[in-house]
Nucleic acid binder design. Structure first.
Lengths: 243, 243
DNA sequence: AGACTTTTAAATGTCAGACAAATAAAAATT
DNA sequence: AATTTTTATTTGTCTGACATTTAAAAGTCT
C-alpha cells in the first residue's frame, strides 16, 4: 500500500485509492481494522487531516465504517445490498437528470430490464410478494391520492415484481433503473382515467403472476410500457401548445 | 441548505447530505460554483477541515469537482455515463465478492439482463459494433491466451452486444452486471475444448445479430448460460475432490 | 471473591491558525 | 497594444490542540 509522494496535488485521493485497492484485492478483509489515523499518517507521511479526507472518501462509498472510542477506528465494511441499492439509486437518478436522458430511453431500459425478471418472477414469486402487489394496487385505487403518492406506489409494485425473481443481484441492478425513473414519472399528471388503466394493467400482471403465467406477464408489461409512453407524449404535447 | 448543529457527531456527513440534496433537487445546477470552503464554514458554522471532509465525500461520488486558484472552487459536476459506469463496477464487484453471491445467482442475473438487450441489439446494432465482436472472437481464438485475457475479451464481446441496443441507460445498468462477473469468471480455467465451444456460441450470436435474428440471439444466450454454469460446476466439483 | 464504580487511555470528531501552490484577474512595464 | 509582473483568491496541506466517546483497567465496596 504505497503512494507516490511527489507527483500531483491530491494526496487524499491517492491514499483513498491505495486503501480501496487493498480492499478490492482482498489484502484487507471484511471487518478488519485499519491502522489508526495517526498510524496511517505516519505510514503515508502525510498529516492527519489528509488521512481523514481519504477515509471520508471511502466512507462515502460505504467501503469503511468508523467507530469512536478505545478500540475504535476504521473498519472494512461489508457492503450490504441495502447500501449498494441506495448508492445506485442516487447515481442513477443524477445520471438521468443531468444528462437529459429522454423519457423514452429511460422507459425502454426500465421495461426491458423488468421483462427480464418476469419469467423468473412468475416461477418463484412468493405469496408475500403477491400480497404486497395487491396492497399497492388497492392503494393506487384510493381516490384523493397525489400524483407523487401514486408514483411511489407504482414503484413499490414494480419493486415487488422484481424481487419476485428471488435473485438479489437482479433486484440490486434493477433498483436503480426503476427508482431512478420516478422523478421522470412524476412529471406525468395522471387523470382518473389513466390511473384506472394502469391499475387494470397491474391487476392483470398480478393475476398472471399468481397463475405463474410468464407470457401474459411479459405481454402486459409490453402493453404497460406503450401506455406509459403514450401518457408521457401527451404531457409533452400539451406542454408544447397548451390549451 | 441547513444542518442540525446539535444532534449527532458527524457534521461532515450532514453537510455532505445537505449539499447532495441541493444538487439532487436541482437547487444547485450543473457547473454551478459552490461557495468557497471559507464561506461554507461560515454558513454551516463549522471549521474548514470539516467542510473539506464533506466536500471530499461528494468528490468520491463524482458529484463535485474542485479547481485551485483564483476563481477556482468546487463545482457541481455533470455525472458522466463514464463516471457512473466505473462507480457501478466498483460497487458491483465488491458486492459480489463480499456477500458470497453464488456463481449461479450472478450468472443468472447477468444473462437475464443481457437477453433483455438482445432484441434491441438485433434491431439496432451498428456495423462498428459487429466488427468489435468479430475482432474479439478472433482474439479469443488465439492460442497462448491467458485465462484472464480470454475473460477480458469475453467481457468486451458482451459489452459490444449490450451497447448494440443503443440505449445508454441499458449499457450503464448492465456494465456493472457484466464486468462484476469477471472476477468470478476468472476462477474458471478454460480448456482448449471449452474455449472452442464458447467461441462457437459467440460466432452464432454475431451471425444472428448480423442477420437481425433476435430469436437465435436469445436462444444462443440461453445455451451459453447453461454451458457457462456447467463449466463452473465442473470447476467446483474438481475442487471438492481433486484428481 | 465478586460485583459495581471510577479512572484511564486510545481513538475519532472538531477546531484554529498557518503556509504552500496554483491560477486568474489586475496592475505595471515595455 | 502587447507583454510581464504583481496581487488576490482559493484549494491543498501541515501542526497542534481540545472535545467526546468508549472499552478496558484499576479501584472500591459488600
Amino acid at each position: 500500500m504505497k503512494i507516490d509522494p511527489q507527483k500531483p496535488a491530491d494526496l487524499s485521493a491517492q491514499i483513498a485509492q491505495a486503501i480501496r485497492d487493498a480492499i478490492v484485492s482482498g489484502e484487507l478483509i471484511v471487518d478488519e481494522r485499519l491502522p489508526s489515523e495517526t498510524e496511517l499518517s505516519d505510514q503515508f507521511q502525510v498529516s492527519r487531516p489528509t488521512v481523514r479526507e481519504a477515509l471520508k472518501r471511502l466512507a462515502a462509498q460505504s467501503l469503511i465504517r468508523t467507530q469512536r472510542g478505545a478500540s475504535g477506528g476504521a473498519f472494512v465494511n461489508r457492503l450490504s445490498f441495502q447500501d449498494a441499492y441506495s448508492q445506485q439509486i442516487t447515481t442513477s437518478t443524477l445520471l438521468l437528470s443531468m444528462n437529459a436522458v429522454t423519457f423514452d430511453t429511460a422507459c425502454e431500459a426500465r421495461y426491458a430490464l423488468e421483462r427480464a425478471c418476469a419469467p423468473m418472477s412468475a416461477e418463484r414469486r412468493t405469496a408475500d410478494q403477491l400480497a404486497t402487489m395487491r396492497a399497492e394496487i388497492f392503494r393506487q385505487s384510493q381516490p384523493g391520492l397525489t400524483d407523487e403518492a401514486f408514483c411511489a406506489s407504482d414503484v413499490a409494485f414494480h419493486r415487488a415484481l422484481v424481487d419476485g425473481a428471488g435473485n438479489p443481484v437482479l433486484s440490486y441492478q434493477l433498483a436503480g433503473a426503476v427508482e431512478a425513473m420516478q422523478p421522470l414519472m412524476n412529471m406525468i399528471t395522471f387523470t382518473a382515467r389513466s390511473r384506472e388503466e394502469i391499475i387494470l394493467f397491474h391487476e392483470k400482471i398480478a393475476d398472471a403472476l399468481e397463475a405463474r403465467d410468464a407470457e401474459t406477464v411479459d405481454s402486459t408489461l409490453v402493453d404497460l410500457e406503450s401506455y406509459t409512453r403514450l401518457l408521457a407524449h401527451d404531457v409533452a404535447e400539451r406542454r408544447r401548445k397548451p390549451a
